[in-house]
Design a protein around this nucleic acid. Structure first.
Lengths: 344, 344
DNA sequence: TTGAAAGCGCTAACAA
DNA sequence: TTGTTAGCGCTTTCAA
């Protein structure tokens, strides 16, 4: 790999000049010099050494995309349709902006923080942070951070108010409206399926509870369909939930994949969807549209959200102050074929 | 961020010593010094500057994962189930080996090559290279390379014989056996659906052709269901192919997603799968199992293949010569519910 | 067993 | 308009 120094020597000029034309800082360079350098650069196919560049300029052009994952989840986080769809948009924007994406996947925030510091990343995109982890990140990382789908408590936010930016979603409203819709179709025994009780899913649960309570329908802990989603357990767990579902007329799932899996488990027991059981998903990822029956689900514009998150981060990296500390994307219920009126 | 120099000064020793204990080059350091340094390191939470480290040591701990993509494809390449599933395994192995993954997605190999050189990546994992691109990579990149799913011509291979490593699949056999299976069920009008005619899909096409010809079934160009897979065209294109499919009794698709989309398009026309039409997918990705009817498909162990690819690359980076220049993974036909006997 | 110092390739302040 | 030079933080050779 040819270096600036070599080029400078070859062309009988200083590295500064070469560096300047490389970076288009061209106001103080004579046209003919520019020409000469540019030509030579093209000729030898000069490629900068980014490690050197980064070291000297104290930046990195790396955006850290941080996804905290649970080990032993039944699928790798990159295979989750929501993740792969949002990453697609993110990757594209990062690339087009001339930055590089580095994925930090781990269940250990301390580890991630180390790596992020080691690489001197220019900014961080954080998924699904919870209080503790968010706090740790904000305390240690002194550069732009944008969160996605992050619900952290008021007290925690207070500590770093001016630097907290979240690109969120109407999670609560999403399930709230879904339940109202189901009730309007005559459903009363409505279950809620999730594999956790934090963050996003907690909000979705709250929306579900609110709609139930407004309709005067009593909620019991049994109505929470808790899925054990480890590699070993998921199928057995889903089969159990399908059995339980026979005593319900509708189940709301926290993801389209779970909805699809539940439908499968039900069909295995001879329970027809939507005739015997209505099933709703969440996110409107590709599997919802691929499914037969197509899954009624809470739609969000995943790609747009990811792109906005990264654009916001990029702006902050360029020194702009974010206008809002939170942007909440709308959800809309996509009525498809996995929901029917409750049988009399 | 604290530096080695600062630590050395604080501890009244040289940077060499500090560096040595950091890297465990401990045979020439007295136990008490080690102790003292280690303690201080932990205390201040030292994090190395990787850009500096890489610059000085002429490596990077970065594995470049190169995916050539077509712009305007109907979905971002990261959302392709095959890609996200294989990347999951790859990411995990890279991370556990203490390396970093950098994704290079582009339709322009020259651009990728520049970035890869700029970052001084330690090795490259290449997906789906075709002759021209492979040649360019091998000519310019003088470090370990492992290919996945790469069919390049003998002449091209010859040029870099000793450095070509491919982790492939029995693509040809996969469709060959599928067609034989279909024929055994009485099918004769069998279509082949794909969005391209290169590399992997070309081999799959050949297997299909071979089985047809062995069975004495004539092939016509019309039997190739060519899908236009751009964002704008895909749905219309699939609808057309579904219409065409009415004149067939079975269609083999080059991916599970395409199989699923075809089934949907058929159902829309009142064509039942598998009763009226048998549909087969390829890869056995998650959508195949999620689908109803579950899709009969050509299974491969995606995760294992990705992991082997990256393990092989890691070995080469550590200086081992690869034992084989090609490892071909087996395919097996997963018989599920999207195929039935041909109606009399 | 430890330390001094050169150098990795680049940037940028300052001098000319 | 162009050049000199001192770093950026780290590794590593060679000397002590």
């Amino acid at each position: 790999m040819i270096t600036i120094k070599e080029i400078a020597k070859e062309l009988n000029m200083s590295t500064t000049t070469v560096s300047n034309v490389i970076h288009g800082k061209t106001k103080e360079v004579s046209p003919e010099t520019i020409e000469r350098v540019q030509e030579y650069l093209d000729k030898v196919g000069y490629v900068p050494n980014l490690n050197a560049q980064n070291l000297a300029s104290d930046q990195s052009k790396i955006i850290g995309v941080v996804i905290k994952t649970r080990e032993d989840h039944y699928m790798h986080i990159l295979s989750e349709p929501f993740v792969s769809e949002i990453l697609g948009g993110i990757e594209q924007v990062i690339r087009e902006a001339g930055y590089y994406m580095m994925l930090y996947i781990s269940d250990d925030i301390a580890d991630i923080l180390k790596k992020v510091a080691a690489w001197n990343t220019d900014g961080l995109l954080l998924f699904w942070m919870l209080d503790d982890d968010a706090l740790r990140v904000y305390k240690r990382y002194r550069k732009p951070v944008v969160c996605v789908d992050t619900y952290i408590s008021r007290e925690v936010v207070k500590e770093f108010e001016d630097s907290f930016v979240n690109i969120g979603l109407e999670d609560e409203k999403g399930t709230y409206e879904t339940v109202k819709y189901l009730i309007s179709l005559g459903h009363e025994r409505i279950g809620f399926l999730s594999d956790n009780h934090d963050g996003v899913d907690l909000q979705r649960f709250r929306g579900y509870r609110r709609a139930l309570s407004e309709a005067g329908i009593e909620y019991s802990n049994k109505d929470f369909f808790e899925l054990r989603s480890t590699k070993n357990e998921i199928h057995k767990s889903m089969a159990k939930l399908a059995e339980k579902a026979e005593r319900y007329s509708a189940v709301i799932c926290c993801s389209d994949v779970y909805a699809s899996m539940l439908i499968n488990a039900c069909e295995l027991r001879g329970v027809k969807v939507p005739e015997d059981l209505s099933v709703v998903g969440f996110d409107d990822t590709i599997p919802a549209r691929l499914s037969r029956p197509a899954i009624t689900t809470v739609h969000q514009d995943i790609e747009k959200r990811g792109k906005l998150a990264i654009k916001t981060l990029l702006k902050m990296i360029r020194g702009e102050k974010p206008k809002k500390s939170e942007i909440i994307f709308k959800t809309t219920l996509m009525k498809r074929d996995s929901v029917a009126e409750r049988k009399k």
